[in-house]
């Protein structure tokens, strides 16, 4: 059996969990074994309505009320205990923050290896996976051992694909043995007040600034363009290290990963760690004085020149366009 560990919000599986179900479904087909899923928390049972479109035959629900809120070790104990009981060949979770954390706890508890951020899985002996290094800038082919193969699936390694046919899903609630030690860490959500600002994650256009912007004050022209286009301003790691912008603006391997329609990289050289964060943009426009900078060859459009000169001309032209009464 292949067991998919899915995350859900009040019973609705997350997008990454649908990707996990899709990969787990393919894997169960290749291995000719059933596909089952596990959701933690009493509300997990509501996921049955969705997992039915992914070929799941059984949905296990860790329904102890103490598991309703996120407690990494408690969730992992539930998944590990189920794994010991139903004895799957493979357990696959998401590589989200929570998925990675729970699967690491499961692996530690069960004393098994764990392959994180897999993009391809070839079952058999040896069991071979392809996994991401350097945020996906490099791939590793590896053999994964262990009586149960534990892995997490890299985000967007494939697209979630629901099947038009539905399976009969049997819901199996279970109550794992838990003690106080499993709840030494409970994470309590703190929802932030909506600031009304367009967030980097949601902006259709992101204007990213690097060292080539020149100074903290130099970001005024990027802010102006963001205002004119209804976008958000991001930056490279060099910029946060210089203290020009807060870390929450950082795009890259150790910052935000964004997927706007257009990413405008201003004075950013295009180090692999930065590209990891903006690779999913539909289009990239690079503004750089160096025509040989890595960002230029990875962009769809480029302007060779100084950020401030280019932006002052662009901003002025957009302002002028706006002055002309429409129609």
């Amino acid at each position: 059996m292949v067991l998919a560990f899915i995350e859900h919000l009040n019973g609705a599986p997350t997008t990454l969990s649908l990707e996990v179900l899709t990969m787990a479904g393919r894997l169960s087909g290749e291995m000719a074994v059933p596909l089952e899923a596990v959701a933690i928390g009493p509300k997990g049972a509501a996921a049955a309505g969705i997992v039915t479109s992914y070929g799941v035959s059984r949905l296990h629900v860790g329904d102890d009320p103490r598991l309703a809120d996120y407690a990494p070790a408690g969730w992992a104990r539930a998944v590990a205990e189920l794994t010991e009981r139903v004895n799957p060949e493979v357990v696959i979770g998401t590589a989200s923050d929570r998925g990675s954390e729970v699967m690491a706890h499961v692996a530690a508890r069960m004393k098994l290896p764990l392959a994180a951020n897999c993009t391809e899985i070839a079952p058999g002996d040896p069991f071979t996976v392809t996994r991401q290094r350097w945020g996906g800038s490099l791939l590793e082919e590896a053999h994964l051992k262990g009586r149960v193969k534990l892995l997490t699936l890299a985000p967007h390694a494939l697209a979630a694909e629901a099947s038009p046919s539905r399976t009969e899903v049997a819901t199996h609630p279970f109550t794992p043995a838990l003690d106080d030690k499993d709840f030494r860490v409970r994470l309590v959500p703190q929802v932030e007040a909506d600031t009304g600002k367009i967030s980097l994650a949601q902006a259709r256009v992101v204007i990213g600034g690097g060292r080539g912007v020149g100074s903290a004050e130099g970001f005024a022209s990027l802010e102006e363009l963001a205002g004119l286009l209804g976008g958000a301003v991001g930056c490279s790691r060099a910029v946060t290290s210089l203290g020009w912008r807060p870390h929450s603006d950082q795009v890259g391997q150790t910052g935000m990963r964004i997927a706007p329609d257009l990413y405008i990289a201003c004075g950013i050289s295009g180090a692999i760690q930065h590209m990891v964060g903006c690779r999913a943009a539909k289009h990239i426009l690079a503004i750089n004085t160096d025509a040989a900078a890595p960002i230029v060859e990875q962009a769809d459009y480029a302007v060779i020149g100084d950020v401030q000169k280019v932006l002052s001309s662009v901003n002025a032209q957009i302002r002028k366009l706006r002055e002309v009464p429409v129609g």
């Binding site: 769809d300 302007v303 020149g305 000169k309 001309s313």
Partner: peptide, 13 residues
């Protein structure tokens, strides 16, 4: 993949 160079400096506005 190829890159389209839109121009240089302010001329590219």
């Amino acid at each position: 993949h190829s890159v389209e160079i839109l121009g240089k400096n302010g001329d590219a506005g």
